[in-house]
Computed example of a mutant assay.
Amino acid sequence: MTAKLLRALLLCLLPAAAAAQSPCRDMAFEGASYTICTVQAGDDLRLFQTAPDGSPYGTFDRVNDALAASGQTLGFAMNAGMYHPDRAPVGLMVENGQSRAGLVTAAGPGNFGLLPNGVFCIATRFSVTESRRFASDAPACRFATQSGPMLVIDGALHPRFLPDSDSRHIRNGVGVGAGGNIAMFAISNTRVSFHQFARLFRDGLGLPDALYLDGSISRLYAPAMKRFDRGYPMGPIVGLVTPAG
């Protein structure tokens, strides 16, 4: 039996109680629907970019296939930053201590270049740091991904966001609690504006710093919720690693 078929069989056998143990939950805020996935410092949260054969992982299934060799699986996962057509990261990417792409601090086109942008860092704790501040005092990150724009900066919304904007998309991002002991990943289940999405992190989740990861292509893998979003291959992926079975 292949690893993929075995995983599908195990998912079919998950007890109903497994949903209660999921790191993810659905949440309504200001009339919009979101799914929130929470991790604590010390959890095995990783970024996945480069598969064992040197190519980008691209899909949740490929990450799971690689983890299966060590008896592990994804508790949840989502896309974790913007990428070029070859799926290489647009900005900083650190994967298990190895630099895959460098930090970009210049303004540029698109959402990534809408300064301030930022870096999500996984070390002994979590952090979301504005990119130029990160450049001047970078923490030792085991994993890191740069994206943009920042959603919340020291409790303030990004200054370019408009409350009445009609630019609405499915969006996903990450926010970090004060002290860095908790990180919350969110994906909207309905189309929302940047201002709405940023308010979710600041006002709905109470997080002082948050970073936009992407929109339109945003996808979530949450097996305990029986959610397996599909689409074209991605660039960076963030995932919580747990024992299989």
Results as ranks from 00 to 15, higher is better:
2 T>S: 15
3 A>E: 13
3 A>H: 09
3 A>D: 12
5 L>E: 14
5 L>H: 11
7 R>Y: 12
11 L>Q: 15
15 P>Y: 13
20 A>L: 14
20 A>N: 13
21 Q>K: 14
22 S>E: 02
22 S>V: 08
27 M>P: 03
27 M>C: 08
29 F>I: 12
31 G>H: 11
31 G>C: 12
32 A>S: 14
33 S>D: 15
34 Y>F: 15
34 Y>P: 02
36 I>E: 02
37 C>S: 08
40 Q>N: 14
40 Q>P: 06
43 D>M: 03
44 D>G: 06
45 L>W: 00
46 R>F: 02
48 F>Q: 02
50 T>W: 03
50 T>D: 10
51 A>E: 08
53 D>S: 11
54 G>V: 09
55 S>P: 05
65 D>G: 06
66 A>H: 05
67 L>V: 09
68 A>F: 14
69 A>M: 11
71 G>Q: 11
71 G>F: 12
71 G>I: 07
72 Q>Y: 06
73 T>C: 05
75 G>C: 02
76 F>N: 00
78 M>C: 11
79 N>E: 05
80 A>Y: 00
82 M>Q: 07
82 M>P: 07
87 R>G: 02
91 G>Q: 03
92 L>Y: 09
93 M>E: 05
94 V>K: 01
94 V>M: 14
97 G>K: 11
98 Q>I: 12
99 S>C: 10
100 R>V: 13
100 R>A: 04
102 G>Y: 09
104 V>T: 11
104 V>N: 08
106 A>W: 10
107 A>Y: 09
112 F>G: 01
113 G>E: 08
114 L>Y: 06
117 N>R: 05
122 I>S: 03
124 T>C: 09
124 T>E: 15
126 F>I: 07
127 S>T: 15
127 S>W: 05
128 V>W: 01
129 T>K: 03
130 E>V: 13
130 E>R: 12
133 R>L: 10
135 A>K: 07
137 D>F: 13
137 D>R: 15
142 R>S: 11
142 R>H: 10
143 F>S: 07
143 F>D: 07
144 A>L: 06
145 T>G: 05
145 T>L: 06
148 G>W: 00
150 M>Q: 06
151 L>Q: 03
152 V>A: 04
153 I>R: 04
155 G>Y: 14
155 G>S: 08
157 L>E: 01
157 L>F: 04
158 H>G: 06
160 R>E: 13
160 R>Q: 13
163 P>T: 07
166 D>Q: 15
168 R>L: 13
170 I>C: 13
172 N>Y: 01
173 G>Y: 00
175 G>I: 02
176 V>H: 00
177 G>Q: 04
177 G>T: 04
180 G>E: 05
181 N>L: 08
184 M>H: 05
185 F>E: 00
186 A>E: 03
187 I>N: 00
189 N>M: 09
190 T>S: 14
191 R>A: 12
193 S>V: 04
194 F>T: 03
196 Q>G: 08
198 A>I: 03
200 L>I: 13
205 L>K: 01
206 G>K: 10
206 G>C: 10
208 P>W: 15
209 D>R: 02
210 A>Q: 04
210 A>H: 06
211 L>H: 02
215 G>Y: 00
217 I>D: 00
219 R>Q: 14
220 L>N: 00
221 Y>G: 00
225 M>H: 08
225 M>K: 09
226 K>T: 12
230 R>G: 02
230 R>Y: 08
231 G>N: 02
234 M>W: 01
235 G>V: 01
236 P>R: 02
239 G>L: 01
240 L>K: 01
243 P>F: 10
243 P>I: 14
243 P>C: 12
245 G>L: 15
